[in-house]
Design a protein around this nucleic acid. Structure first.
Ligand code: MN
Ligand code: MN
Ligand code: MN
Ligand code: MN
Lengths: 220, 220
DNA sequence: AATAAAGTTTAGGTAAATCTAAATAAAACG
DNA sequence: CGTTTTATTTAGATTTACCTAAACTTTATT
């Protein structure tokens, strides 16, 4: 199937929203995700249905078909491999790569994708801790991880971040939080859900609830 | 300036045609180069003039402005660096990379471009022997090279090819001709301008005038 | 259940990049 | 130099991906 860049971006966003909640994706949610208007989403939904990439009935929301999921995984694979390339080979930092990968992901060549993967040592996670689908679309668990907000252990390791915004990632950089960083929870403040943290050899600091929800962790 | 992919492709093609002959670029020549129709070229010419990237007056042909040339060199830089990446890092062969670079060149990030260049060891020529502009748009001679067709020496080294078509490059692969290959001219046949060649340790073979015009050489 | 609110779709429009066919200008030719 | 040929431009459509405003459905609230 020959998809435009716009169509690919829709497919990827639908996949993402379906991942977060298993229901149908609503027109409004998709419009918000893609920073566009609901009317535009309806237009595109008709087109993608025509191409059999989504199931869609008026007012009933959107779901990817099997074909649509396959397509989404290919795009996600390319996106995350390029992010690895930028970070591991070109020394970009994790907050810079999402935007660039947003463009590079649209170069559709299986040969390029597979060669790139090989060149990078067939990585299985991207710089934000997200799993990379393999050439057949198989991907490790799509993030059943616990957020720092919900985790109950005292000692935790950062395994992913669920928000790619430059602002958040730069904030984490400033605080010294990256993938693999080990955190000690000093205190959880009930009244605003902020958390006081400590990283070895550094002064303690406090993060907001919003930030703690974006940091995925595992106990150590 | 924020250019669309279509606009960038026009700018690059205009640069190429201006390089070949110093006159104004004609509507028809540009349409042929871009595999589009003259009417579309006229439309785009108006737009690029508006953006001050070309000088253009009805019926008078097209020339890049200084700004247009600068833009063209940036695109060419990205194109050729990606070609180097594909050949040197991902083991593509020279006939495969042009199409891919045609897409990758449109990712506009100076930081990415410069990091990529550095990663590749700041190469000065691409896999087809074409010079790569540096970060300031400085580029080695734009091919004053002699074609095998015109060269008079008996022993020659291949320094570039002036045709990126897959068909030609695959033909050259089959004959064992690549950049740096040393050729002995056995015979030049006047009646059809074909040339009999020999590469060390291989049987002699004959190439057509068309092929010999696309192979750029220097005496050794 | 009736009404209000929220969500979604339709109608109608715009801008970019293309096209074909017709009109016009420039160049080449006898 | 006038005429034919070639090159170029204009006029008018089409497709894609958007938009706003209005209409319509669904859902939530009294
Ligand atoms: Mn994208
Ligand atoms: Mn990522
Ligand atoms: Mn291109
Ligand atoms: Mn090249």
């Amino acid at each position: 199937m020959n998809l435009s860049i716009a169509e690919e971006n829709y497919i990827k966003s639908i996949y993402k929203l379906e991942e977060d909640s298993p229901d149908s994706v609503t027109t409004n949610a998709l419009a918000a995700e893609l920073d566009t208007k609901p009317a535009s989403v309806t237009d595109m939904a008709k087109k993608l249905k025509e191409k059999k990439l989504i199931d869609y009935e008026k007012y009933q929301g959107i779901n990817l078909t099997a074909e649509g999921k396959k397509t989404a995984l290919q795009i996600i694979r390319r996106h995350r491999l390029w992010e690895c390339f930028l970070v591991n080979k070109l020394a970009f930092s994790w907050e810079e790569v999402h935007e660039l990968a947003e463009e590079l992901e649209h170069v559709r060549s299986e040969k390029l994708t597979n060669r790139l993967s090989e060149f990078l040592g067939n990585p299985t996670t991207d710089p934000h801790g997200d799993p990379i689908p393999d050439a057949h679309g198989k991907m490790g668990k799509p993030r059943i991880q616990t957020s720092l907000h919900k985790a109950r252990a005292k000692r935790l390791e950062v395994v992913a971040v669920s928000d790619r915004s430059t602002a958040l990632l730069e904030f984490l950089n400033a605080k010294g939080i990256r993938l693999g960083t080990q955190l000690d929870v000093i205190e959880r403040y009930e009244f605003d859900n902020s958390i006081e943290l400590k990283i070895k050899n550094q002064p303690a600091f406090t993060i907001s609830e919003q930030v703690s929800k974006s940091i995925m962790v595992k106990p150590i």
